[in-house]
Design a protein around this nucleic acid. Structure first.
Lengths: 235, 235
DNA sequence: CAGAATCCCATTCGATACTG
DNA sequence: CAGTATCGAATGGGATTCTG
C-alpha cells in the first residue's frame, strides 16, 4: 500500500517538504521551501565542487551540529538536491553529492553572494572555506578582461587542492593536483588567498607573514590576480 | 546578566543581525544572515516593484502573522535592505520601500526562482501574487527572441496594475495605468496570466472560463506571450 | 486600519553523550 | 568515522488584545 511515496517524496504539492509551506507558485518561494532552512544552502555550496563526506561538511561548516547536518542532508536528499552514495572501494565510506539539478543552483548561490558582498555591513575578513573561496573566484571574475587570457592555476588551500583552468572568460574549477598549474598558490587558509584577490595585498607581504607560497610564473600569477575584484559597495 | 545583545543590534560584524551567525566571510553566508530567515526574501520580492504598506504585505503573503511581519520588517530595515517611510500627504500612512541596495537583490531572487522552477517537484499551479507574476516575466523572458520586438503591455491582475515596456530585450515593469498599453491583460488572479504565459493555455479558453480579458491588438498579445517559457525540468 | 505588545505552545537548535 | 539519542534553552509564529 505505502510503497515508494512514503519513503521518497510526496508529490502532493500541498504537502511541504519540511512542514512549512508558503503556498505560493512563485519559484522563489519554492526555492526557499527547498533550501531556505538554516545551513541548507551552505551545504549545497560546499558540495558544489564535488561530493564530500559527513565529517568534511562538519569541518567546513563551523558550528553546525551533527543533528542538524543529518536533518539537512535528509531534507536535501528528499528535495532531490543531493544523493547519498555508498563508496565501498578502498574503505567503506559515504559521500554526499549534488544531483545534476543540484549543481544548477550555482548561479543562484553566486548572485546571493554577489549581492551580499555589496552590503556596507559585509565583512570580508572572516574565516572562509576553501570551496567558498574557489566559488567566489567564479563569481568575481571579470569575464571581459579574462577573455583574452588562458591559464592553468593550481591551488592548495588548507589542505584541499584544486585546479582552475581559465579559458574564454570561463573558469572551470575541479579538485585535482595543483602541480598541473603554470602557477600554484599554496596557503594555510582561504582568507590569505582572499586578501590577494580582493584586498590587493601584495604577494610578497603574504609570503612573508601569512604562509603564502607562490610557485611558477609570478608575472602570470599577478596578471591572474588582477582579473578579480569585489563589486562596488552600494549605499 | 546578558543585557547588551538583546537591547540593540550591534554593527560589530562578529555579531549577528539576528543572533545566529555563520561566522563565514562567504557572501552567500552573509546573504543568508540578512535575508535567510523565513519570509524575509518573499517580503523583499513583494517590494521589488515599489513600496507597499504593512497590510498590503500581509495580504499577499498568505499565512504571515503580524508579529512575524513586524519582526522581519525590523530586521530588514536594520540590515539596510529596506526603509520605512512615513507618508503624511493624503492620509497618514507608512510605506516600506527597498533601498537602492535592496533593489539589487532582484537577480538573486530571480536565479533562485529559475532554479527552483526546474525542480521536478515544482507545482506552477499554486496561488501567485501579482508581483511574483510580473517578476517571473522578467525571469522567463527569452531575451534573444525579444531583441527585435518593442511593445507596451498593460496588466491588471487582482486589482493591481502594471505597465511593462518591452525594448531591446529588456522588460522594465512599473506600477501604472494599464490603459497605456497596446495590449491590456486583465485577470482576476495571477495564475490566469501564468497559464497564458507558461502553460500555453489558449487566450480564448481563459477568456471563456477564467475571467481573462484581453484588450487591444490580439496578434501582438500572442506574439508577446510567445516570448516566455519555463526553463526545462532537470532530472 | 497600522502596528505594538502579550501570551503560549510547537518546533528547532546546539551541546553532549552514545552506538555500530 | 558516521551518524543517533536525548535534553535544556531559545525561537518561531499564531491568536489575541491594545493603542492611536
Amino acid at each position: 500500500m505505502k510503497l515508494q511515496k512514503e519513503t521518497s517524496i510526496s508529490l502532493d504539492p500541498s504537502q511541504s517538504l519540511h512542514g512549512k509551506w508558503y503556498g505560493d507558485a512563485c519559484g522563489t518561494a519554492f526555492a526557499l521551501e527547498l533550501v531556505g532552512e538554516r545551513w541548507s544552502l551552505l551545504i549545497v555550496r560546499e558540495l558544489m565542487l564535488g561530493g564530500r563526506r559527513f565529517s568534511d561538511l562538519r569541518r567546513v561548516l563551523p558550528g553546525i551540529s551533527a543533528k542538524v547536518l543529518t536533518e539537512r542532508l535528509d531534507g536535501l536528499e528528499k528535495a532531490g538536491v543531493l544523493v547519498k552514495r555508498q563508496l565501498g572501494s578502498p574503505a567503506p565510506a559515504q559521500v554526499y553529492e549534488l544531483t545534476e539539478w543540484g549543481y544548477l543552483a550555482e548561479p543562484a548561490i553566486q548572485e546571493l553572494g554577489r549581492w551580499a558582498a555589496r552590503s556596507p555591513l559585509h565583512d570580508p575578513q572572516l574565516p572562509l572555506s576553501p570551496v567558498s573561496l574557489m566559488l567566489s573566484m567564479r563569481t568575481m571574475l571579470d569575464r571581459d578582461a579574462a577573455k583574452t587570457f588562458d591559464a592553468v592555476i593550481g591551488f592548495e588551500v588548507a589542505g584541499e587542492t584544486f585546479v582552475a583552468e581559465l579559458t574564454n572568460g570561463e573558469l572551470p574549477i575541479r579538485r585535482g593536483d595543483p602541480a598541473a598549474g603554470q602557477v600554484i598558490f599554496r596557503a594555510p587558509a582561504a582568507p590569505v588567498i582572499a586578501g590577494l584577490l580582493y584586498a590587493d595585498l601584495p604577494m610578497k607581504d603574504l609570503e612573508a607573514n601569512a604562509g603564502l607560497l607562490v610557485e611558477g610564473d609570478r608575472a602570470l600569477a599577478q596578471r591572474f590576480l588582477d582579473l578579480f575584484e569585489l563589486p562596488p559597495k552600494s549605499g
